[in-house]
């Protein structure tokens, strides 16, 4: 009797963890951007990125608060927010898209998979299509998602004054690094 109860409990516990989670999320994802220009390199990190991945459909969304980017130098942070990205006017950046090759990723099995991501990126009030190849790693019930891609500031109407054009790159590198937990 005791044995059956134990077996039942074990199978119940195992069973409940085996039910596949569909949605994964984070509220503390990281997005880092780097601008490499002839005069100086500028880097900033945002540690409060919200991301949701629906593993069934492959739908993927990110939300980033512009004021959350931290720079090494205060002046850069102020220029970034006040002059270039006008964060008071456009406080949020968003990505809405999908993992195009979602069918090739087995979310139930630990492993590293290539992820082709395609969607619409909104920064500074401008929405543009973006496409990149990222990586999805399934590990111990979590999903580690990362990607690197470049965006042209001109595409998002970010104007850089002539005076500092050698300080800021025309194409900035965006690095995404998120650990997603199952949404219960």
């Amino acid at each position: 009797m005791k044995k059956t109860l134990l077996l039942l409990t074990i199978s119940f516990v195992l069973g409940s963890t085996l039910i596949a989670q569909e949605k994964y999320f984070t509220k503390s994802g990281k997005i880092n951007f780097t601008s490499k220009a002839s005069l100086e390199n500028i880097e900033a990190l945002n540690k409060s990125v919200t991301a949701v991945l629906d593993t069934k459909s492959g739908n993927l969304q990110f939300a980033v608060l512009m004021k959350g980017f931290e720079f090494e130098k205060a002046l850069m942070q102020e220029h970034f927010n006040e002059n270039y990205l006008e964060s008071h006017k456009y406080p949020k950046a968003e990505f809405k898209g999908a993992v195009v090759n979602n069918g090739e990723i087995n979310y139930a099995k630990d492993g590293t998979y290539k992820a082709n991501v395609k969607g619409q990126l909104t920064i500074h009030g401008q929405t543009k299509p973006v496409e990149t190849e990222g990586k999805i790693q399934v590990k111990n019930g979590k999903i580690l998602a990362d990607a690197v891609f470049g965006i042209a500031l001109a595409d998002y109407n970010v104007e850089i004054p002539k005076l500092v054009k050698d300080n800021i790159a025309k194409i900035v590198n965006i690095e995404v690094d998120c650990t997603l937990d199952p949404l219960k």
């Binding site: 949605k23 999320f25 004021k67 959350g68 949020k92």
Partner: peptide, 16 residues
């Protein structure tokens, strides 16, 4: 740094 309104995850005011 702002507000993330989210029905699914719950909304948050973010302080940095």
């Amino acid at each position: 740094t702002g507000f993330n309104a989210d029905q699914l995850l719950g909304s948050d005011v973010i302080l940095n």
